[in-house]
Design a protein around this nucleic acid. Structure first.
Lengths: 154, 154
DNA sequence: CTTAAAACACATATTATCATGGCCTTATCT
DNA sequence: AGATAAGGCCATGATAATATGTGTTTTAAG
């Protein structure tokens, strides 16, 4: 009943943060991980998957890191989460009937289908730009600002 | 993203079947399991949990089995599924923020909360009587009719 | 009173997924 | 050249969900 996996939540957190700090250049995993309170190596793997999915871009080498591959307004939560979730299962029959569709519906079909569609629609319509607008308090925001200051001071 | 666990699905299937055949008396696990295509022992455990939850009644001994504890119209899907699901997690913040409520919402709070409420409402409003109305095709319905015929013939 | 059928209880696998950590390779900037 | 950071690979742990197996207790029927 958790709907989203931990991994997806990590991905959303990281993507939201990146959406806020798009300008100064890429952010590296160490900073992201500390700021968000996520295990470094795990986040690294997760972000790599997002690169493969075309959501993020990576820059290797010194002063490398990750940034959004497109403007935040063009990246939906669906894009971010889809690599880690089986959205198809949303359409699974509530009773597990092998045949359950609009023609031969089970008794719960109507209501259940509506919910699945609701969920998918939410993820498809909400963008990272929407999330970026919030005043979200990261677990360790100080690390982030310090890192950014550091870069400028450099 | 599976929303419901396999166990919950089993519980719903069994409860729906019982809602249809409430009259003739209790049905035993062996028949239910075969008719529904569910591992016998596992279903047994699951139904016991539903007895403890007050959803089903059990009759021990020969000619025993399980039946609904109340009229199907008074049993919601929530009742059936709640013992196996953590509905509280539905209210979890999408971004995992420790503080995210109506007063201090994260950017996704509104939309996300609406979905959680939608899900809960569906389970609370739909009853077993609703499900029983359908012409559901069980994996092995023949077993069931045979068992019921046998009882009558006896 | 014996026996068979059934729930019930408990113990133990078995998966599967999620999550983490370490290390080596590769690319890129200074 | 050297430092830095992504990327890939593998091994491990943690946990829950799923499934099976064995035995005990209750009850109806003969």
């Amino acid at each position: 009943m958790a709907i989203l996996s931990q991994t997806s939540e990590y991905a959303l957190r990281a993507a939201t943060l990146l959406a806020r700090h798009a300008e100064p250049g890429p952010l590296d995993v160490a900073v992201l991980a500390k700021a968000l309170g996520i295990p470094r190596n795990y986040l690294s793997k997760t972000l790599s998957q997002l690169v493969r999915a075309g959501v993020l871009e990576s820059v290797r080498g010194k002063h490398g890191g990750f940034r959004l591959a497109r403007p935040a307004a063009n990246l939906t939560l669906y894009d971010v989460v889809e690599p880690f979730e089986h959205f198809a299962e949303t359409r699974r029959c509530l009773l597990g009937q092998s045949v359950c569709n609009d023609r031969q519906p089970c008794a719960a079909h109507e209501g259940w289908k509506a919910i699945g569609e609701r969920i998918v629609r939410f993820f498809r319509r909400t963008t990272l730009a929407d999330l970026a607008r919030s005043r979200t308090r990261w677990p360790n925001a100080a690390v982030l600002t310090r890192a950014l200051d550091g870069r400028v001071a450099d």
